[in-house]
């Protein structure tokens, strides 16, 4: 018993080290993108999309990795944020420092109401209801097609402004998105180490025991759901402004599946893993789908394979390799 405990302790120390290295590499790679894509603006746009995907992945990992609640409809909040921000920019003002906070407040209110019912359910019911929520948001686009544009999508979102200055240049956009991502990653790590993060982890490991030691599990789950939904909506809002349009595809359950794939591919609960997963996946998707149009087959097949072969995700597999390598090196030294 004590052996296995010691083993898990070293593993987690190795995890921390791997995470730190990965964070530094990701931050450096991300920051260097505008330098070498100067002559290829298309790559910069692809990189910006990868960064948005990374923010969504991070938002889902805040829920899945913290409290262990599995959302199969995270695209609901992503799409909600995109449509709401797009509409607000179109109808009110293109100032992003007004429309984005507006979206966040609206998301917090709605996610609290819906989350209040959702988080009281057990794992499976929660998963099913989140999938249904995704379909409902999808349906909402068509119910309100007078406002949302229905099948055609929301077109003609004006060029957004920050402090009254129009944001047009792709590299400026990239820095904004990248800044949001970095801030979100650092905030996530901070939360993970704070008492709140510890309480969330306790709920993931054993909800009943967490309740017995006096944690208010209901409110804590709700908080994690709302935080996660809000970050996803922020990513959606940024996407709508960046892209200048939003379509109902954003709310498709395939989109939810993609977000889930980012997290599973990267490793649930590792924070940096889903970010890497999202970036790798978005770029791979772009190139693979330009070669073949049966992308869904490869996607689904790969998804199944990852769950069976590497349930800890690529990052989990890598860091266990790393720790095995580290252990054998230490063994050789002693």
């Amino acid at each position: 018993m004590s052996d296995s405990l010691a083993a898990s302790a070293t593993l987690s120390r190795d995890m921390v080290r791997t995470t730190t290295y990965a964070l530094v590499v990701v931050a450096a790679l991300g920051a260097s993108v505008p330098l070498w894509t100067g002559s290829m603006p298309f790559l910069l746009i692809l990189a910006s999309q990868a960064v948005i995907a990374a923010i969504v992945a991070l938002s889902l990992d805040l829920l899945m990795g913290s409290t262990g609640l599995l959302s199969f409809g995270h695209a609901a909040w992503y799409g909600f944020g995109a449509y709401l921000t797009g509409l607000a920019a179109k109808l009110l003002t293109p100032e992003m420092l007004i429309v984005l906070p507006l979206t966040l407040v609206a998301t917090i209110v709605l996610a609290t109401i819906i989350g209040f019912v959702l988080v009281r359910q057990i794992g499976k019911t929660f998963a099913i209801l989140t999938l249904a929520l995704g379909q409902i948001m999808f349906a909402l686009v068509f119910v309100m097609s007078g406002v949302t544009g229905g099948e055609d999508g929301l077109q003609g979102i004006p060029v957004p402004k920050a402090f009254g200055i129009p944001v047009v240049r792709p590299d400026v956009w990239y820095w904004i998105l990248y800044g949001v991502l970095l801030a979100a990653i650092l905030a996530s790590f901070h939360i993970r180490r704070s008492p709140l993060g510890k309480a969330w982890l306790a709920i993931r490991e054993n909800t009943e025991r967490a309740r017995f030691i006096g944690l208010d599990t209901g409110s804590l789950k709700l908080l994690s759901y709302v935080v996660s939904a809000t970050l996803a909506a922020l990513a959606g809002g940024l996407f709508a402004l960046f892209n200048g349009a939003a379509s109902s595809d954003l709310l498709n359950w395939f989109e939810s599946g993609k977000v889930l794939m980012y997290v599973v591919l990267g490793g649930v609960g590792t924070i940096i893993g889903p970010v890497i997963g999202a970036a790798v996946f978005t770029i791979t998707e772009h190139y693979v789908s330009s070669i073949t149009n049966s992308w869904l087959i490869y996607f689904g097949g790969f998804f199944v394979l990852i769950v069976i072969v590497a349930p800890g995700g690529l990052f989990g597999a890598l860091s266990s390799l790393w720790s095995r390598f580290g252990a054998s090196r230490r063994g050789a030294a002693s």
Binding site: L296, I297, F299, V304, I306
Partner: peptide
């Protein structure tokens, strides 16, 4: 979920 996507694909 992955299987559903695969079969649909």
């Amino acid at each position: 979920f992955g299987l559903a996507l695969l079969i649909t694909g």
